[in-house]
Every structure is written in structure tokens, then in C-alpha cells.
Design a protein around this nucleic acid. Structure first.
Lengths: 200, 200, 200, 200
DNA sequence: CATGAATGAGGTTTCATTCAT
DNA sequence: TATGAATGAAACCTCATTCAT
């Protein structure tokens, strides 16, 4: 019998280690040897689980997004009506959240010149936008905002705000504590509440 | 006898070439040899004008931001009241604008793990935010929106929206033609107009 | 309790698999993992039966030569006087024959820089040359050709022709169908028949 | 002004070094560092002149074949009627000749599983066969042998003999001194002389 | 000033071999 | 016996940097 190893858990352990390295050293500062050190194995083991470095990076992205989604799902299950709480999960608040989001953002620049990554990012974005859209639809149902004339554009607008805030907060954590980020988010939601009546 | 060359113009020619390379191959795909090819000189010439690769990158960022600012200044001089036009200059509209903005965004990811770059980006952001703030103040003066209780946060919110839209449009130019980007921007400004009355 | 396995049959199954891999990927493209896949076992099993990679290669060569010899023996038993048929067995005719011969040839290049392999090849060659010599002696007995003044050199000459044709045919199967190969062989035998009278 | 270097002579110096390494260590034992040592430069310099290892190998083959052709041309210019001398140039006689031919043969095995190399080898073979054909035509003109009914097949047959002898002699230099190789060659030519009358 | 050949450190990748199970 | 995960040495290759010209 071979050494008993859970192939998937090993893979995701390496992906998680890659996330940590990316959050710390940046995506182009990532070396497989560092990932190996962080994961407690050698580069040989890494290439046993991944075809090449790029596959490790993609797995790291998937891992970060997956972890974020998991947190979101849990939050939604616990408090379905907590709009601000749900949206805050995609902001760099708390150390774990920050790391995941830094990984997510790190891939933007790389996607700018990598079509395969763009496709992957686009899929992720659509799923996230759909969640945000459902959230907005819930608000409309509860009468907090007027029904959107164009739900996709409305959701897209909210996504843009969240990414914009999250980016600024990632670059400048000192100036952007959680309360400032959430404040900006609330500011936007208030605008929506006050302004959505006139059917933009 | 040394050839007479304008040192500064040579530097900025190389920086411009670096911008083009970044827009095309991405910031971590940039090689000095490619920059040399794009600038019509050799790597040796580059190292005459720049201490090292990082200096080239920084110059490329400065060049992109500088070109963007120049466009903005001209636009403001020509049409001081055209709020939408002014803000659109920082969106990836038109091929030249897109390249500059891709360069700008490319540095975000790198800044996430490079304190020196963060400082530089912070300065740029503050200048831009100030411009955006003056634009909003102008709108308030003209009575389009109510005076902001917190002008910095208001400007920061608008910056976030622009970055969020610009990022999405950069990643997915096909889905984000100029009119959709501007549409999102107008959507936000309309929210501001409708909603700023209650002192968010 | 150990599974009952025929040690020798396992060894030769692996050797046969190695032959297939060599015929397909070439001798320096052979990886033990591929051999494992082809043999339906793992690298671990291979290292149970063979000291190291080189031993696997040698076994592959032995296997190919052995298979070729088996075909030759059968042919000789069936039709002792069919000179052309006997000699054709060492040409790359038919898919099985081609694979074996490609393996055989692949070891030539390797033997050029491996004394141990040279020794092995020399032994194989001598046995084969002896067979070819017996074949020529049979022809002389039947009066088809004059008795050779130097049987070894005569056999060596025929071996050279066969190897030369076989090599060309291996490299360029499209241009060298069976009939062209056999045609060249017949051409040489005809020269022997016509020319051996003068005691070369 | 940059360091003055004759690009082509540098390339061929490296190719020649690769030839030496192949002749000594075999084609799959070739390491770029060894080539560098043999050429008096580093691996970096090698990749400055060649895209990758494979390009170095191909250049080595071209170099060996080119050197052989040069020797042949010179010999033909000096002694156009010396058939045996011309043909001997493609046999492993003398240390320089042996090295070139070992390189040539080393590529056979590799070509067996590399279509690009096969194409290259095919071209080389055709040129060589044409030369051999012209040599045979000359013999026919001089009345040494009867005109061939099929000159291509006749030349092909002689090529096969030469390759067969050369291979054996390369593998077993001790048993195959120059006189034995040339003896085999003469033996074949004598067969041709005696036997070509009947239009094989 | 400018060149670009050459360096050489350092990264990724391959793969024969080992060994706990 | 057999597994196959893991090792780790060694190879290839990249590319910022240097320097003779």
C-alpha cells in the first residue's frame, strides 16, 4: 500500500500556501521554492500535484475565491437580510479576508495580458455579480429601494464600488480601517435608497 | 566626441516604450530587451539612463500618469464645466487612454507588495482625488448637487466608482464599450444629484 | 500474503512495454513512468524487477532481439531454403518487425558512447552474422553462388547491406515499402550470384 | 562600438564544440554546460546564439555534415576519378572523420522519433545519394560498370553498404581498421563491376 | 555616448530513485 | 510484493547586469 495521502487536501494545502506567499511577496515575487517552504514540501512535490507554476497560481486564485465564497455563503445562511454584512465580506476586512482579496486583485494585472485568466476572472465576476444582484433584488422586495430598471447594470455599479473601495483599502490599509470601508459602502447604499426612485 | 542628445527626451522615449510593452505583455512580462526594441535602442542604452529595471518601471508609471494628467488639464481648460468629460478621461476609452490606464492598474498589484510603490501611488491618488473633489465642489456651486458634508469621502467614493468601472472595462473591453462605461458613470452622478439632498 | 506472480513473465512484460515506448518516443525520450503506464504498473514495480533504468533499457533490447530471433528461427524451420524470406525478417517490414528494429537501431547511437552496450551489441551481431553466414553457405552448397574465399567478410558485407537498407527504411517508411526493401536485398543477392565467381 | 565578434564564426565554434561532446559522450549525454566548457564560454553565451538545446544539436549535425561535405568536395576536386577515395570519406577513417560520422549516426536514433530531424536527414541523404549517383555514372562512362537500369536504386544500394560498414566500424573500431572498411567497399564495387552487366 | 556580447545567478522543470505503508 | 508520494540533484533556460570596445 502506498503512503496514504488525500490528494485533494494536499493540492489545496499547496494552493493555500501559494496564497500566503502571494499576499506577502506579490504574484510575480512568488517562487515555487517559497511555496514549497510554506507548504512544508519540496518543489518536486508541488510539480507532482500541478503541471507547472501557472497551474499553481490558478489554484491559488481558485482557493482564495473559494474561501471568500464560503464565507459569503455562511454569512447569507446566518443573516440573509444583512446586506451590509454580505457585501463587506468582499472587502479587505480582517487579516484572512485581506489576504484573499489581495490574491484576487493580484490576478487582475496578470489577467490584463493573459486571455485564459481573463476568461476565468470573467466567470468569477459573473457569479459574484449575480449574488450582488440577488441581494439588491431582496432590498427591492423589502421596499428599501425601488425596483431596478436594469438589474444587471445596477449590480455592476455596486460591484464597481466594492472593487474600487477594496482596492484603495488594500493599497493603504492604514488609512482604510474597516469602518471607513463600510462607511463608503453605506454611503453608496444610502444613495441607492434615496435616488433609485427616479429610474436612472 | 559625444553625440548631442537630449537626455530627458531620451529618458521619456524609453519610458513611453516601457508603457507600450506593459500594455501589451503585462508588467511582469516586461523584459528590458523588449523595451529596448520598442524604444529603438539596446539594453545598454537603457542602463545608461536608468539605474535598474525598477527605475524603468517607475518611469513608465510616471509617464502614463503624466500623459493622463496632461489630457485632463487640457480638457479642463477647454470645457471646465464638462464633468462627465473630465471624469471619462480616467476611464479606458480610446486606445491611447486604455494603454495608459492599463499601465496604471498594472502597478496596483505590484504596489500590493512594494512599499515604495505604494507611497508613489498614494501621492498620485491624492492629487487625482483632489481634482475629483474640485469637480464635485464645482457641481455643488452650480447647485447640481448639495454641498457635501465630507468632501474627501465624497470624492473618494467617486474615485472608487471610476476605478471599479475602469478595471472591469480593462479586463473585458468587448463588453464595456465607451457608452457603457460612461453610462455607469452617469448613473452614479444621477444618484449623487438625487440623493445628496439628505446629507449622506 | 504475497500475490503469486511469475517473476520472469512480469520482467518480460515490462521489457516489452519498454520496447513499445522506445519505438514510439525514442530511446532518450523514454521515462520510467511511461514504461510503467505501458506495462500497467508503477515505477515502484519496475524498480523491483530492475536495478535501474539502464537495466530496463538492456532488457528492452534483449526482448526486441529475442523476438526477432524467434521469428527468424520459426521462419528457418518452416522454409530453410527461403534465403530472401530469412533475411527479410531483419528488415522493418510489418508493424511488429518495425518496432523491434527501431529498438535495435536506437541502441546503436547509445552504444557509440557506452562500452558495456557495445560489448552486448557485438555479441548479438556475431550471432546474427553467423546465421547470415550459414545462409550464404547454404546458397553456396546449392550452387547458387560460388564458395566464399572469406566467409566472414562475405557475411559481414551482407549484414552491412541489410543494416543500411533497414536504417533508411526506418527513417523513411513512406518511401521504403516492403517491396523496395526486398528489391534492394534481391539486387545485392543477384550481384553476389553474378559476381562471386571471380573470388572477390 | 560593441565588442567585435564574428557572429557566424562564434556559432560554428559552438557547433563544433557540440560535435566534440557528442562524439565523446553521446547525443543524450550532451549537456549545455559541457558544450560551454568545450567552446570556452558559458551556457548564457550558447543561448545567445541558439534558441535552445535542440537548435545546438541541429547545428552540430549541420556542422558535421558540412565538414564531411567539404572534405568530399576537396577530394573530388583533387582526384575526380578516385572512386574508392571519394566513398571512403564517408567512412569513419581517421579521428576527424570518425567524430563527424559518429555525430551523423547519433542523429539517426533521434530522428526515429523526431519528424523535423527526419526531414533534415532526408534532405542530407538525397544530396549525398546524388553525389554517389554521379560517381557511379562516372564509372559507367569510363566503362568500369555497365550503365544502371535504375540509377537511383543503384546509388541507394551503395549508400546502404557504406552506412552499414560505417556503422559497424563506428561501434567496433578495433575490429574495423581502415583497410577492412575499404576492403568491404572494394568488395562491393567489384561485385558491381562483375555483375552489373546483366541489368539487375 | 552607445553597443551588444557575455556573464552568471537563480528560477522552473524533469525524473530516476527512495521509502513509508 | 507492490504502491506511488516525495525527494532532490541536475538539467535547461531566462534575463538583469556588466564591460570591453
Amino acid at each position: 500500500m502506498p503512503r496514504i495521502v488525500d490528494h485533494d487536501s494536499r493540492r489545496s494545502a499547496i494552493a493555500a500556501a501559494a496564497c500566503r506567499v502571494i499576499a506577502q511577496r506579490g504574484i510575480d515575487g512568488l517562487k515555487l521554492t517559497d511555496v514549497g517552504t510554506a507548504a512544508g514540501c519540496t518543489t518536486g512535490a508541488i510539480t507532482h500535484y500541478f503541471a507547472d507554476k501557472n497551474a499553481v497560481l490558478v489554484a491559488a486564485l481558485d482557493h482564495a475565491i473559494g474561501a471568500m465564497n464560503l464565507r459569503i455563503e455562511r454569512r447569507l445562511a446566518r443573516a440573509p437580510g444583512d446586506v451590509l454584512g454580505f457585501l463587506s465580506e468582499t472587502l479587505p476586512i480582517g487579516s484572512r479576508g485581506r489576504a484573499e482579496i489581495v490574491v484576487w486583485y493580484s490576478f487582475w494585472a496578470r489577467a490584463l495580458s493573459d486571455p485564459a485568466l481573463v476568461r476565468r476572472q470573467r466567470g468569477m465576476h459573473k457569479r459574484w455579480r449575480a449574488q450582488v444582484g440577488r441581494c439588491l433584488a431582496g432590498m427591492a422586495e423589502r421596499g428599501e429601494i425601488a425596483p431596478a430598471d436594469d438589474p444587471v447594470e445596477q449590480a455592476e455599479g455596486l460591484c464597481a464600488v466594492i472593487n474600487g473601495i477594496g482596492l484603495r483599502a488594500s493599497l493603504d490599509p492604514g488609512e482604510w480601517p474597516a469602518r471607513r470601508q463600510v462607511g463608503q459602502l453605506r454611503r453608496y447604499l444610502d444613495l441607492l435608497r434615496a435616488g433609485s426612485g427616479d429610474g436612472v
